[in-house]
Design a binder for these strands. Structure first.
Lengths: 212, 212
DNA sequence: TCCTTCGTGGTACGACTGTATCCCCGTCGA
DNA sequence: TCGACGGGGATACAGTCGTACCACGAAGGA
């Protein structure tokens, strides 16, 4: 056998280049040649590790979904278990908002992919879009909070969680579009959480960022 | 002078064709030739009435903003003035959600433009994105409701309205992505409004759609 | 040592794109 | 009647796209 190369590492390198382009110049600026240039390799290399453009784009959205998922998961793990529900929501929803340059870039690329998937059924985000698990988890957390009396008894955990996630997504959009900055978005989320958790645990829980 | 043609009508026709393409096959499927084909004219005609592609795309987003704005404005006008705040919110937020094929198509195209504007500063939605007026109006309505005692006194009208609009936008996204249908989205909005207007005017106000 | 196979550079092809140019036809003012 | 001009059909051009193809160097098994 001839010279052996770590294909996975190579692919990851190229995928990162792709996402860098997508988040700065948009998805339509992504061509095989541009990815090659961004990664500092020849066109042939991109062709070699991703036969198709479809395969290349698919690798991008897969990596993106993994990153966003990882971000939420890491933050959730960092605070451990058994913490007050209010804290869980604060951390998880805060992890979705683009609080630093990296997460902002990823959310930009994600938005581009999402919009593309709406009209181009080929690269729909579908299965990769996995907030259903997140939705279920948070619903469970909130349901327990209801039973524990931390929130009013007439709160519907399912609808409430759907609303919180939709709210957060809407705020992400407005932050990306620079109609609002992240601190304002965080304020809106915390205001909503304050009103949900009837003042009982107001202001409790660690802050997601140092933003004040 | 030779044969005279209504330029505005001609342009409107072409713009409609452009938006039809954008909402079905995406913004990247929009080329001058495609618009010409969709409108049933030759490439030259598109060139004639919109010298640039930039001008063409700009006409699309302008028309789109006008449509979305008109939809909210018409619904608001249809219910008259002096109605309970809860009804105002129900109608206005309901007018944003894609309840029929037309509004769905427009929201799809709008999302495409919005996403494109995030990375391509050229055709940013910027000024055309005018929900600030809407935001201010609703904030005023809610502020009055606070003073009238229709909502708890510790409600912050500004943050509350920002949250409601972000929630609605997030729901629009999920409806477009078919993770939820419109009826569910409406339910989430009404649930939130029910909880905001402390049960006082629960269920009051005309329904925005016949959805049950 | 030879020879197969992996990894890669270079390049060519056909299909698009936006834009520019040429030319004709109908119509209206003079 | 004539000429000028608005409206539009047809085509050309330079560039970029995804993809395909060819050739070559390096490396390990026989």
């Amino acid at each position: 056998m001839p010279r052996r190369v770590d294909h996975d590492e190579r692919r990851a390198h190229l995928t990162a280049a792709l996402l860098r382009i997508a988040s700065t110049r948009g998805l339509q600026a992504v061509s095989m040649r541009e990815v090659a240039a961004e990664a500092g390799v020849s066109l042939r290399v991109v062709q070699y590790y991703f036969t198709d453009k479809r395969t290349l784009m698919l690798s991008g959205v897969t990596e993106l979904a993994a990153r966003l998922d990882r971000r939420v998961r890491e933050r959730a793990a960092a605070i451990g278990t058994g913490l007050p529900p209010r804290t869980v929501f604060d951390v998880v929803l805060g992890a979705i908002l683009p609080t630093d340059d990296d997460s902002r870039a990823d959310q930009l690329a994600w938005t581009a992919y999402y919009a593309a998937g709406l009209t181009d059924p080929a690269e729909a985000v579908d299965g990769r879009y996995a907030p259903n698990a997140l939705e279920r988890w948070l619903t469970g957390v909130l349901a327990e909070a209801v039973e524990a009396g931390d929130v009013p008894g007439d709160v519907d955990p399912r609808i409430e969680v759907v609303g919180l996630l939709a709210l957060t997504n809407g705020l992400v959009s407005s932050v990306l579009g620079q109609q609002r900055d992240v601190d304002d978005a965080l304020r809106v989320v915390r205001y909503r959480l304050d009103r949900l958790f009837t003042g009982r645990v107001r202001g409790a829980g660690p802050r997601v960022t140092e933003a004040g």
